[in-house]
Design a protein around this nucleic acid. Structure first.
Lengths: 135, 135
DNA sequence: TATAATTTTAGAATAGTTCTAATATTCATA
DNA sequence: TATGAATATTAGAACTATTCTAAAATTATA
């Protein structure tokens, strides 16, 4: 897919998620959504943007990633560090966390099963279940 | 159990975990280990100390809680916030996280089962598995 | 009790993130 | 395609959680 098509594609995705497809948003989306699964920190994205000659700011990267996550285009994943990761893989899945390396890795969909969830208080529903396996 | 016995008890526990039983450590331990399960943040402990007339400092609370966690007397639990919780419940168990309230709750031991863990890379072992159920 | 090792602490420093408010862009409509 | 209203972007300040520093205090040991 050439750059222009890719861009159009990003625009389509953003619109679909009710996110106004502005220039930086398309650019950042373009860096993240290329079909591969990523776990990026804000710093990662800032570096990627820099490397790709996408001019933006720290605040915009935060705004954009948070906006994407809120809309469901990314998934926020936090580990026992003061730093957030954003996961492009939205399918139901869990994570390995390589403690020494500070690195996250997807556990392929469907492998892990969580069972035995207790009865929930009335009116409560499970929003999501996160399994983090520390290695 | 009276105060003195409680204090002695704390001393014994700390020693058992190879932590030198200094005054503040015994005091902070005394606030936390009374048999109930707690999820405290650093701020919580600072408040508890204040309420109990235990004189200490922010740095010491951090030092102490981190030391306890390292020694295995507490378990660090992080949620999707920039803040750490320390869990006094050391038995194998998982957590409900009440998103709106920013509150953690234990899921009683043995209820939840995680199955289907994939084969690990050679030389890797599971350090721990954390299940967080968002409500 | 004297000495060495460790701990405590106030305050400075750092890191990650959000806020502010001025500027720029986008979108709907004429 | 201009116009204006709504929304987004951004630099830098501010904020929050945590760690660091180094001097003073406490604790353990000889």
């Amino acid at each position: 897919m050439n750059t222009q098509d890719h861009n159009l594609n990003m625009s389509r995705i953003l619109t679909e998620y009710n996110i106004r497809p502005t220039t930086i948003r398309k650019n950042i989306a373009g860096l993240l959504f290329d079909g591969t699964d990523r776990h990026v920190s804000v710093d990662d994205v800032i570096e990627m943007a820099h490397a790709a000659n996408v001019k933006t700011s720290v605040a915009s990267v935060y705004n954009t990633l948070n906006r994407f996550a809120l809309a469901g285009l990314l998934r926020r994943v936090s580990v026992d560090l003061g730093r957030m990761f954003f996961d492009t893989n939205l399918s139901e899945h869990h994570h390995f966390y390589y403690e020494n390396e500070g690195r996250l890795e997807d556990i392929p969909h469907g492998l892990i099963k969580v069972s035995g969830l207790p009865k929930l208080p009335k009116g409560r529903a499970v929003k999501s279940i996160n399994v983090m396996v520390w290695l």
